[in-house]
Design a protein around this nucleic acid. Structure first.
Lengths: 189, 189
DNA sequence: GATAACATGTAAGAGGTTACATGATTTC
DNA sequence: GAAATCATGTAACCTCTTACATGTTATC
């Protein structure tokens, strides 16, 4: 379901071909919010056109077909955005899973993994901060535009992760000293 | 790939049947880290057994088959945990996507959505805080055990989201007053 | 004896990835 | 003219969800 709305949203920035969309997924949004390959995009575009949510805006060389979002498409997207996701069921977050499984490692390895987590999250937050500055300059908007807002969200998440990792290292060390770290006793689990 | 490691990790807490695992996914871990249904779990258990990563620990009434993690299974899990995810490609986060698409809404609806986001994130953080307190009491560990650590991670993420949403509301308001909010001008996009 | 909970299984289909495949145009 | 890039398509395969299906044991 989400893919079609991602496409509708991207088409609001101007007519795009499947090829254009694939590039924007791969180069930009794929790193922040949602990813998709061309093999998924082209069939979806056909579906969206059949439903009247997008229409052909132009045909160019090499069989290029650019689409635009119709009024119906915009209405559909707005409807989806203003309906809160029912959710509450079924997180599927590999990062969180890895953290949850950390007690399978002995405390030294666990701390090592947390060190990596902390370093990676800090680096990501740093990278996005640069990105936001660049976007604010480029757009002139306080938010740095839609990408700026999303990037700011990413910064907050990564900083929270880094902070959590530091605190978790301490807690693992404390538990390990007290002989309470599960991964140090694989036999009696 | 992740499912098999989730199962191996769960089996470290003691022998479990597919039914037991399904319940733990549905009632606990599914809300924090990873979810799976029994229709996925049973075939995976068969695969893991064929590969020697788990073995039958007991057979009980009603065809119940409990498995335990073998030494090979633990080694496999530890290998996966200590190998950093290559990632860098292909986020698939519906929440982030929704935030990214926010500029498709007029500024009033966008702020309304952000208000919801803020309220929901705050409530989740609150709920998890209670949970951590409970886990710390129950386990006697500073971390509150593996679930406690994962829950703390969740708290940090939700607080970051709530904070971001407050800041985003301000920025949308500023951009809207300056006539720079894209969703207020659907025609000239 | 009925009902709830335990326990496992299969099948159809959506969503997604990787790989294979093809051809047109631009650029050097 | 070769190579890179543009541009689209298909097929096999994996993961996951939903629904259908079946039988057993405990509890009231």
């Amino acid at each position: 379901m989400a893919l079609r709305f991602a496409i509708l949203g991207l088409l609001l920035d101007g007519p795009s071909s499947g090829y254009d969309l694939a590039r924007r997924f791969a180069e930009v949004i794929g790193a922040y919010a949602w990813d998709a390959k061309h093999s998924q995009i082209y069939p979806e575009l056909r579906g969206l056109e059949e439903e009247g949510l997008i229409e052909v805006a132009a045909r160019g060389a090499r069989g290029r077909t650019a689409y635009r979002c119709t009024a119906e498409g915009l209405a559909e997207l707005r409807g989806w955005l203003t309906t809160p996701p029912e959710s509450r069921g079924g997180v599927r977050n590999e990062h969180a899973l890895r953290l949850f499984l950390l007690p399978a490692l002995d405390h030294e390895d666990a701390i090592e993994v947390l060190r990596h987590t902390e370093a990676a999250a800090t680096a990501q937050a740093e990278r996005l901060s640069q990105e936001v500055l660049r976007l604010q300059e480029a757009t002139g908007a306080a938010s740095g535009g839609p990408l700026g807002l999303t990037a700011q969200y990413g910064i907050g998440s990564f900083r929270a992760t880094a902070q959590w990792a530091r605190s978790a290292m301490d807690q693992v060390a404390v538990d390990a000293r007290a002989g309470r770290w599960p991964g140090d006793h694989p036999s009696r689990r």
